[in-house]
Design a protein around this nucleic acid. Sequence first.
DNA 1: GTTTTACCAATACGAACGTATTGGAAAAAG
DNA 2: CTTTTTCCAATACGTTCGTATTGGTAAAAC
Lengths: 201, 201
Amino acid sequence: MPVHVPRQVDHKARRDQIAEALLDIVASQGLEAISVRAVAAQAGVSAGRIQHYFANKDELLAYAIEYQDWLVQQRWNEQTWPEGEPTPREALRWVLLETIPGDDRRRREWLVGVAYLIRMLANPKLRALYVDGLPRLYQLLADLVRMAQEAGDIAPDRDPGMEAELLFGLADSQGPPVVLGLRSPEQAAAAIDYYLDHLFQ
Amino acid sequence: MPVHVPRQVDHKARRDQIAEALLDIVASQGLEAISVRAVAAQAGVSAGRIQHYFANKDELLAYAIEYQDWLVQQRWNEQTWPEGEPTPREALRWVLLETIPGDDRRRREWLVGVAYLIRMLANPKLRALYVDGLPRLYQLLADLVRMAQEAGDIAPDRDPGMEAELLFGLADSQGPPVVLGLRSPEQAAAAIDYYLDHLFQ
DNA sequence: GTTTTACCAATACGAACGTATTGGAAAAAG
DNA sequence: CTTTTTCCAATACGTTCGTATTGGTAAAAC
C-alpha cells in the first residue's frame, strides 16, 4: 500500500503520441525505417521516453497498429448522419468511400495496413485484426444490399453475397492506383458511384 | 584492348539465384529482414559474391523486383493454349485467376509486390513497374469484354470499362483473404467463375 | 610453362541498431 | 522540510549492419 504517490501522466496520450510518429514513418518509408531512435526523433521525444513506455520494439510496433485500428473504429462509431438514419444506399456509399485512401489520414491508414500485412502472416495477434474485420465488412455490405432489395431499390434477382464481393472488390482495388497517383480520389469515388447507379434501380 | 580474357560465368544466372533468395525472404519476413548476409545465407553463397554482383543493397533490391517482373512476363508470354486461340471468356478467366495467390509461386509474387509498394511511392523506377502495368491490364480486360460482346456472349448494354473495373476488383480483392488463409484459392476461383457465369449469357 | 584478370572468400571498419543501466528531476504525501 | 516513486534523459554495451579492402584461386590467352 503506497503511502507516497508521485505525479501520474496520461499514459495513453504518451503512447499514442509515439504511435502517431511511428505510423507516419511507416506510411512514408515502410517498416524497414522503424528504429527506436527514428521514432523518437519523429515524435520529438527522447529515446528514453519510448523505452519507458514500451518494453521493446515489437511491443511498440504492436501497439501502433492496434492504435490505428482503434482510430478507425472510433471514426466508424462516431459517424453521425445529419438527418436521422441513412438509407441503405447512403450507408453503402459511405462505407465504400471510407476505404479509399483519399485524404492524408486514410492514405496513412492504407499504407500502414499494407506495410504490416506480411507481419500478420506469422503473428496471430496482428492477424486477428484483419481476420476478424474482413468477414464483418462483407456481412455489412451484403446486409445493406439485402435491405435495399427489401425496400425495392435493388432488383430482387441480384445476389447480395455476390454484390457484396463486387462492391468490396471495386472499392478495395481503388487503393493502389489512388495511392500511386495513377487515379485521383475523385475518379475512384466516381467509379463507385457509377456502379451504385447501375445497381440501384 | 584486353589480350588475356579469363573465364566468364553466367552473370544473369548468378544474379537471378541471389534474387531468388531475396524474394523468398521478402515474402516470408518482409523487407525489414533483408540484409546482405541474410540473402547470402538463404542463397547458400558468400556475402562476397553478392558484393561482386551488386554495387550496393539498393541495387540488389531493385534487381530482385525487376527479376520478379521479368518472371511474370515470361509466364504470360509463354502461355500457350491447347487448342488454337482461346475464347475471350477463356482468356478472361485465365488472366483473372492468374492474379490470385493460389500457389507458392504466385503467393510469393503477391507478397513481394505488397512489400515493395511503399518503396514505389518515392522511387520512380519501381513506380514504373506498377504504373505501366496496371492500365494495360485494365485495357486488356475491357478489350476482352468488348470482344465477347461482339461475339454475342455478353449483353450489349454492359459497359466494358465498368466490367473491367469490376472483374479486376473482384480478382484483386481475393488476394488478402487467400494469403491470410481466410479463403482457399478454390473459393476465390469459384467467386470469379460465379460472376463470369452471370456476365456471360 | 607464364601472364593476366575475372571471380569471390575473408576480413576489417565505422555507423546504427536494440536494449540494459544509471542517475537525477520533480511532484505528491506526510 | 523529508520521503517516496514515477518519469525519463543519458550513457553504455554488445550485435548487426552496409560496404571498403585485401588477398588468393583458377581459367583463358600466349
